[in-house]
Write a protein that binds this DNA or RNA. Structure first.
Length: 278
DNA sequence: AAGCACACCTGCTAGC
DNA sequence: TGCTAGCAGGTGTGCT
């Protein structure tokens, strides 16, 4: 569910409401969400520590602790982090509860349990969280020179969409924003990456940065099922600016001529305008 | 070695 | 009303 803009919105909430708080108590319900280590490792690693930062790499949330370790949360498809008053009624699928020293609680809620919560040692990240260590450039958090995108695009004949989704190359773009970015860049999702020229590459670079920035400013995308909400439970509004995702069969609002088409590739739905995207 | 199919779960919706 | 099939924002594994 959440992609870079949604995770960044949650990160900003954590920066504001969690940093500086001491974790006084930890409860773990379903053990599956702490599968990378164990229930005991999470409880021992978090209890009586102070959260000293709130960072994001791609779709990973990282909160350094005063112990020198760090908390990592990945929301995957259906995870949520919510802040609530102690004693508030917890939604079903609340798997981890952190009690904080100001009387509030942070909840990790995740119906599908693809998400995970772990405490790790940052100096051993390559061993403890290899996929985090292997992430590519973060187009928002890092400097992202357009020459770097040029190198990535020229390195493979893969289609543009799976390339944008490859977290080892560029970190944070998911299924919704890949479609929106390619539409904004007027490039077909199935176009072979190494066939686009410099001008198209610069367009793609500008579209990545502009689309993600605009989505962050809108607080991310919350679809009809309201699965994505921020730390305070509020939805985003970028879904109102989607031009292709979820708009199959509608007239293209960009060129006014094409009809948005939906195809399946790699088991993921893909949306594009066959008229204005080449 | 890169790239692909499939697995991992639950809940919701559309269609019968 | 109630069943079932299909679909969902992501990534890890295991195969070619």
């Amino acid at each position: 569910m959440p992609e870079l803009p949604e995770v960044e919105t949650v990160r900003r909430g954590l920066e504001r409401h969690l940093v500086g708080r001491r974790i006084t108590h930890v409860e773990v319900g379903r053990e599956r969400v702490v599968r990378r280590t164990s229930r005991e490792a999470l409880i021992d690693g978090l209890t009586n520590t102070v959260v000293v930062g709130a960072q994001r790499r791609g779709k990973y949330l990282i909160a350094p602790l005063d112990s020198g370790e760090a908390l990592m949360v990945h929301l995957r498809m259906s995870g949520q982090l919510l802040l609530a008053a102690a004693g508030a009624t917890r939604p079903s699928h609340t798997h981890v509860v952190l009690s904080l020293d100001d009387g509030s609680e942070a909840w990790f809620v995740d119906p599908r349990t693809f998400g995970e919560v772990v405490v790790f040692a940052p100096d051993r990240v390559a061993v403890e969280l290899p996929s985090l260590a292997a992430l590519g450039v973060d187009p928002i958090a890092d400097d992202f020179p357009r020459t770097q995108l040029r190198a990535i695009v020229r390195s493979t004949g893969r289609a543009l969409k799976p390339l944008l989704l490859d977290q080892h190359r560029i970190a944070g773009i998911g299924n919704i924003y890949a479609d929106e970015i390619l539409h904004a860049a007027r490039l077909r999702p199935d176009r072979a990456a190494n066939t686009i020229d410099a001008a198209a590459t610069w367009r793609l670079h500008a579209s990545i940065v502009a689309t993600l920035d605009a989505a962050i400013r809108a607080g991310g995308s919350t679809l009809g099922d309201a699965q994505y909400v921020d730390l305070m439970g509020a939805g985003g509004s970028y879904q109102d600016q989607h031009r292709v995702y979820g708009r199959a069969g509608e007239r293209c609002s960009t060129c006014g001529r094409g009809w948005i088409r939906r195809t399946i590739s790699g088991g993921r739905s893909t949306h594009f305008c066959p008229v204005c995207q080449h």
